[in-house]
């Protein structure tokens, strides 16, 4: 992320260290992940310890410190989704896209992540693809949702 862009995000949040979380979210919205150089520049620009920025960025599962692919597929592995077959869904996607959970395909097309509960347990098993929530998933429906990505 270039300096001007980073500065505009920081300004948008009044340069307030209390808004660090919102700043990180905005950076990730732009970059899809949190690059090391950007976090270093952010810490320097806001006069914050890098250790604090790093602590916050690693605390939340929503942040990624590794480059993410063009598309993001998040499978909920909370208790409700888990007992309704989320692990099988993860296995299925792992096989279909040849990627291990927590990683990105070699062609940087898809990142597969798991998360422990997004709070929509009634819809379990739940999968979020590029911000869109798909409830009551099974392998067949999963294939239909991921087909456009596969064919890209």
């Amino acid at each position: 992320m270039d300096d001007a862009k980073l500065k505009s995000i920081i300004e948008k949040h009044d340069r307030d260290p209390a808004n660090l979380l919102a700043i990180l979210m905005d950076i990730q919205k732009e970059e899809r992940w949190l690059p090391k150089e950007t976090l270093k520049a952010l810490a320097a620009e806001m006069n914050l310890p890098l250790a604090r920025v790093y602590a916050l960025a690693t605390f939340f599962a929503a942040f990624s410190l590794k480059p993410r692919g063009k598309h993001l597929c998040t499978v909920c592995m909370g208790t409700a989704c888990h007992v309704r077959g989320a692990p099988r869904l993860v296995d299925h996607i792992q096989r279909e896209f040849d990627v291990l959970a927590g990683n990105t395909t070699a062609d940087m097309k898809l990142t597969l992540e798991t998360v422990n509960c997004v709070g929509a347990c009634a819809l379990g098993p739940l999968v979020i693809v590029d911000g869109e929530y798909h409830g009551n998933m099974n392998a067949g429906k999963m294939d239909r949702v991921l087909k456009p990505i596969k064919q890209e």
Partner: peptide
């Protein structure tokens, strides 16, 4: 401020 906790839970 050189160090801080990273990650969460078992990580």
């Amino acid at each position: 401020n050189a160090i801080a906790f990273s990650g969460r839970g078992s990580h």
